[in-house]
Design a binder for these strands. Structure first.
Lengths: 209, 209, 209, 209
DNA sequence: CATGAATGAGGATTCATTCAT
DNA sequence: TATGAATGAATCCTCATTCAT
C-alpha cells in the first residue's frame, strides 16, 4: 500500500528528523511533520503505514546510510587498529555533521515501544556486525586479543562511542565531538590489543565479620 | 504537598516498576499502577505530584540505592583494579537480581521528555562520580594510565556496562548477565591500565584515486 | 445529622466567605475552607450535609442578617421616601462594610446549580418582601404611584441596587459605594413617586418602507 | 488555530445554548454539546479553543446580535422617551423569542470564572454604551434630568430590565415577558424625566436612645 | 466530637488516522 | 496522487465525601 520512494517520501523523513529534534518524540505530531514537509497530513499515509512506520523508516534510512558510510570508510583500511580508528572517526563525524539527526538517533529514538525497537533492531544489527567484523578481523590478524568474545568486544566499542555521543548531544556546552576520537581510540585500542597486561579478575575475598 | 514517605509510597514505586516493565512507560496507566499497588487512583496523587513524578521518584529511589550499594561494595576494596572488578560485578548483580527494575532502568527510563531527563540527571551524576572516582584513584595509585581523561574513561566504563546490560535486558535468551563480568573486566582493565601498548592513532592517509 | 450551631459552625461559614471571595466559587475546595476555619476536612461534614449546604447556609446566615439589619433600619422610619432612602443606604452600607461578603453575594453565589438557587430563593424572597412592603406602604400612604405593580417596582428597586453593587464589586477602581446612595435614590424616588410625569408609552409607528 | 466560522461553528454554538439551558453550564459536557450539534467531540476543538471559548463565543455571537438588533431598532426613533420604550421592548422581545438563550444569558453566563467574565465584558460594554447613549441623548434633548450621572442611570435601566428578565426566566409560571414592557417603561421614564418631583434624600436623624 | 488519609467517579482534551472530494 | 476536515478513543487528575481511629 505505502509507496516507499519518491521526492515526498524523502521530504517527509527529513521533516521528521527536524521536527523530532526540535520538539522531542512525543511532541512530534504527524501534522507538524506534514507541515514541515510541505504536504497534507493525509499524504503521509500514502508513503507510510503509520506514524511508527515513519520513525522506523527514518531510522532505516539514516542509519542505513550511516552504516554504509562507515563501511566504505573501512574499505581501504589496512590494519585492524586503523580500522578501529576510522570507525570511531566516521561514527563521530557523521553525528557531528548533523546535530538534529544525532539528537534523534541518540535520544529521541531510544523509545520504549517494543514494535519500534523491533523495527529498528534489524538495521542496527548491521552496524553491530560491521563493528564485530572489525574485531574478528583484528583477532585473525593477531592484533586483537583472541581471548575476547567478539560480540562482547563489539558491545564495549559501541557502548563507549554511544555513551560519549549521548553525553555530547545532551551537553549544553558546544564542544567538538571529534576531539574525543583519539582519546577514546587510545583506551579502546589498548583494551582490545594483544599486548596489554592487567591484573586478572580478583577473587572475591570472603568478608570476615 | 506530596507526602514522599510511608508504606504506600514504596508500594506505589514498586508497583510502578512492575507495571512499567510489563507495559512500557507509555502504556503504564496510572490506574494500572494503582491497582497493582492496591490503592485507589487518587491515592497516588497524595504521594506524588503526577505520573512523571512517579517515574522520577522511582529512579531516584532505585538508582540511589544502586549507587549506595556499589559505593559500599567499593569501600573495603584494595587496588583500583579490584575496585573496577567489584564495580562491574555490583552493577550487574543489582540488575540481574531484579529484572523488572533492570528493564525500567535500561529501557523505559531512556525517555526523551526533557523534564524527566532533568529530574534524573542529578542522581545519575552521583553514579558517574563514583565511577570517575575509581578512575582517578587508579591514576593516582599509578595503576591506570595517567594520560586518560577521567571523565572520558568514565563514559567508556559506564557505556560498556550499560550497553551490555541493555542487550541483556532486550535479549530473549535468558543468559546470565553476571557471566559477562570477567570478560568485560578483562577488556576494560586493559584499556585503563598503565602497561598496555597499542599503536597510536593513525594519521589519515590521503586517498589516491 | 448535621449540627447547625456552635462555634465551629460559624467559623466554617466565615472561612467559606473568605475562601470563596479569594479564590472564586470553583476554586473554593472544601479542604481550603476547612484549613481556613482551622478544622479538619471531615469536621465540616459534622456541621453541614455537603459543600452545597455550606453555600446555602452561608447565604442564609449572611443574607438573613442582611435582611434583619435592613428591617431594623426601617423600623422607626417615617415616610415611604425616607424608607426608600434608608433601604438603599443600608443595602450599600452592608456591602461596603464587608467586601469579601459583597463579592460572594454579588458574584460567586450567582451560580447556576438549580439546587443552590432553590436553597437560596427562600431567603432572598424575604428581602424581596421587605422591599415590596416599602412599596406597598408608599402606595397606601399616597406617596408612591398607585398604578405601579408593587412586585415590578420591587424588581426595579432591587435590580438597580444590585446592578450598581455588582459593578462596584467588579470594578478595579476602589470607589465608594455609599456615594451612589443619593444619586440612585433621586432616580428611583422620582420613578416611584405619585407626582412625576412622563410621556406615555409610545405606540409603535408602523414603518413605511 | 481555531476556525471561527462556518456551518458547524454556528451549529455548535446553537447546540451549546440548548445544552447549557437544559443542564446548566457545569453539567454541559462537551460530549453532550457535540452530540446535539451532530459532530464529533474533537470537532469542537477545530472551531473553539476550549469549552470556555465556546461559552464566550456563544455570548459574543448572541449578545452581539442582540446589541445590533437593539441598535437598529433605535435608529429611526424620535424622542428619547421613545428610544427608552423601544429599548425595553427590544430587550424583552429578544429574550422572549428564545427562552433557551434567555436562560443562558440571564443565568448560566453569570459565572464567576474571571476569564469568562473578562471575555464577556467587552461585548456587554457595547450594550451598556448603547443604553448610556440613550441617556445622554435624552439629557441633551432636555427630556431627561441633567442632574443624573448617565452611567448610573444606565445601571438602573439595565439592572431593572435584567432583574425583571431573570425573574421571568426563573419563574415556573409561563407569563409573558413583553407584558412587563409598559409598566417598567412607566417607572423608568418617570425616574429619568426632567419633570418629576420627589422629596430630597432625607438627612439622617440621629437616633435618640 | 474530631481527625485526615483514602477513596474513585467523572470529563476535557489530544492527535493518529480516515475518506469524500 | 493529494488534500485536510472530521473523527472518537483513550487517560490523567481533581476533589467532595467517607470512615477507621
Amino acid at each position: 500500500m505505502a509507496k516507499r520512494t519518491g521526492e515526498k517520501y524523502q521530504a517527509i523523513i527529513d521533516a521528521a528528523v527536524i521536527i523530532i529534534a526540535e520538539n522531542g518524540y512525543h511532541n512530534a505530531q504527524v501534522a507538524k511533520i506534514a507541515k514541515e514537509a510541505g504536504v497534507a497530513d493525509g499524504t503521509i499515509y500514502l508513503y507510510f503505514e503509520n506514524k511508527e512506520d515513519v520513525l522506523i523508516s527514518l531510522f532505516r534510512n539514516k542509519m542505513g546510510l550511516f552504516t554504509e558510510t562507515v563501511r566504505k570508510e573501512l574499505k581501504n583500511t589496512g590494519s585492524p587498529f586503523e580500522m578501529l580508528a576510522r570507525l570511531i572517526q566516521a561514527h563521530f563525524t557523521r553525528l557531528q555533521q548533523d546535530r538534529s539527526l544525532a539528537s534523534v538517533l541518540q535520544i529521541e529514538l531510544r523509545q520504549s515501544e517494543p514494535s519500534i525497537r523491533q523495527g529498528i533492531s534489524q538495521i542496527i544489527r548491521e552496524y553491530y556486525n560491521l563493528i564485530e567484523h572489525v574485531i574478528r578481523f583484528g583477532i585473525e590478524k593477531g592484533s586483537f586479543n583472541p581471548d575476547m568474545n567478539p560480540r562482547l568486544a563489539r558491545k564495549i566499542v559501541f557502548g563507549s562511542m554511544d555513551e560519549v555521543a549521548t553525553c555530547w548531544v545532551l551537553s549544553t556546552r558546544q564542544y567538538n565531538l571529534l576531539d574525543m576520537t583519539i582519546p577514546i581510540y587510545n583506551i579502546l585500542a589498548r583494551g582490545l590489543s594483544m599486548t596489554g597486561i592487567a591484573p586478572p579478575f580478583p577473587r572475591e575475598i570472603p568478608k570476615t565479620h
